[in-house]
Design a protein around this nucleic acid. Structure first.
Length: 430
RNA sequence: GGAGGCGUCGCCUAGUCUGGUCUAUGGCGCCCGCCUGCUAAGCGGGUUUGGGGCUACAACCCCAUCGAGGGUUCAAAUCCCUCCGCCUCCGCCA
């Protein structure tokens, strides 16, 4: 949630942000009213409560008849305090609800508009011209089958649509990508993390994912109040919840590996074939805790690390500045890196990095100690590699006419020096 | 899965049976000051976090905070219930 002080002191800034997102600023006025009501309720309760406490001391000291008389009086007061406390709790609840309904205040630099109003910041590399090379590129499904790397049929048989097995070189490829990503992160000073992908309600709620469409896209464990995460951003954001971190320990950079589960509700008919959009994939995610002052600069660094990784894979991609209306509630700015997918003839999202400032930490109660003061802390996240889409991009981009795939130089050491992935003699498909 | 124990303001700890004098004890650590050739020791004071009022977002005053949330009561660290976490034992298991 946003800083109540910004809401109180600069409501117009919040309204402007809402407008930029193409959303109503009615929530702002609702929250302001709720804030006023809350403060009134607090003052009323505290005043009576103080009186009750004073009275209580007299009761404790009194004896006999005097005590009985005092008890009779304080009983009425006690009932009043109880009512006022209930009223205060309600007012407080209404206020947090109203506050939670307000998305983060977007950055000045964030483009105005919706899904189609993104701004292309730069394009790196040139998409391969297969026509000039004289052959028709195969899609990742066919390449995966030829290489014995991706088994979609058995994925569907065992787990249903949008599932897959990575086999042979496909499995090796995942491990290689994970290691390449983890090594890069470690060399950049990140702490490597293997995070739980099953979390309790608190963690899921804290990151705000349950609010989005009522948690439509999230797998819940039957009768357990536990959830499968869609990204390790969830466990990593909750990692330091209810903690007061030493400001001098910032930035804290984590590179977290976890499987990610998404129901993909509402994406029927989109990317139905292959492994572009699946219910489960593994991902290495960068997650950073830092100061509010440093957040924007850190965001640029995260983007740079994402680009570094894509460069190592020798992919052609573009960097996109996502528009306000297409931003998640917690982000003030988001950059996507979209790699060129030859058989689709377009750029598709491979990585994404968001600056969430203090929006998540406020909800999850993570704060910092700075000198003799405490203050908010910012979080940022960014994909290093989402395995399935990375594999799609690598296979399609570096394929050769005979169905083999050239291994990018940086990845070769992680595949035992292998320079080319070659089709297997016997395809393991049905 | 079964049985039991525990959770106190950085750490350790008193208090819980027998509710009010707890504005939570003491020690350690830390901070400020005094003393002192220097250091150590000693002496005095301070040392949770959040919120509200008032304001210079200071000082000050108030409310909450004894794992979390409810309940009983005029009054809860203390009694009752639920949940969370940790520990011990048994069972099961990769």
């Amino acid at each position: 949630m946003i800083d109540p002080r910004i809401l109180r002191d600069e409501p117009d800034r919040v309204r402007a942000s809402q407008t930029k997102r193409g959303a109503s600023s009615e929530v702002v006025d609702r929250a302001l009213d709720a804030d006023a009501a809350r403060r009134g309720a607090i003052a009323a309760y505290e005043e009576k409560r103080a009186a009750q406490k004073t009275f209580g001391k007299q009761v404790a000291q009194a004896q006999g008849e005097e005590k009985q008389a005092l008890l009779a009086q304080v009983k009425a007061l006690s009932a009043e305090v109880k009512d006022l406390e209930v009223a205060q709790t309600h007012a407080e609840g209404a206020w947090t609800d109203a506050l939670k309904a307000i998305p983060n205040v977007v950055a000045d630099a964030t483009p105005t508009g919706g899904e189609d109003d993104f701004v292309v910041l730069e394009q790196v590399g040139t998409p391969r011209d297969f026509a000039a090379e004289g052959f028709e590129p195969r899609d990742h499904i066919e390449l995966g089958r030829l290489l014995g790397a991706i088994d979609l049929e058995r994925g569907a048989k065992v787990s249903g649509s949008r599932f897959y097995f990575l086999t042979g070189i496909g499995a090796q490829l995942e491990l290689a990508l994970v290691n390449l990503a983890m090594d890069q992160a470690r060399n950049a000073g990140f702490t490597q993390v293997i995070a739980p992908s099953l979390v309790r309600r608190e963690a899921m709620e804290g990151t705000g994912y349950l609010d989005q469409g009522g948690g439509e896209d999230i797998y819940r464990i039957e009768g357990e109040e536990m959830y499968l995460v869609g990204t390790s951003e969830v466990p990593m954001a909750a990692y330091h919840s209810k903690e007061l971190l030493d400001g001098r320990s910032l930035p804290r950079r984590y590179a977290s590996f976890s499987p990610c589960f998404r129901k993909e509700a509402g994406s029927h008919g989109k990317d139905t074939k292959g492994i572009i959009r699946v219910h489960w994939f593994d991902k290495v995610e960068m997650f950073v805790y830092t100061t509010l002052e440093d957040a924007a600069a850190e965001h640029e660094r995260l983007l740079a690390w994402e680009k570094e990784f894509l460069d190592k894979l020798e992919l052609a991609y573009q960097v996109v500045d996502i528009a306000a209306g297409d931003l998640g509630a917690s982000a003030i700015r988001k950059f996507d890196c979209e790699a060129w997918i030859p058989t689709q003839g377009k750029y598709r999202e491979l990585t994404s990095t968001s600056n969430c400032t203090d929006f998540q930490t406020r909800r999850l109660d993570t704060r910092g100690r700075f000198g003799d003061k405490t203050g908010p802390i910012a979080t940022l996240n960014g994909t290093l590699t989402a395995i399935t889409r990375t594999i799609v991009a690598v296979l399609e981009t570096h394929q050769q006419a005979d169905g083999s795939v050239r291994v990018p130089k940086a990845l070769q050491p992680y595949l035992g020096g292998l320079e080319v992935l070659t089709p297997v003699a016997e395809v393991t498909g049905a």
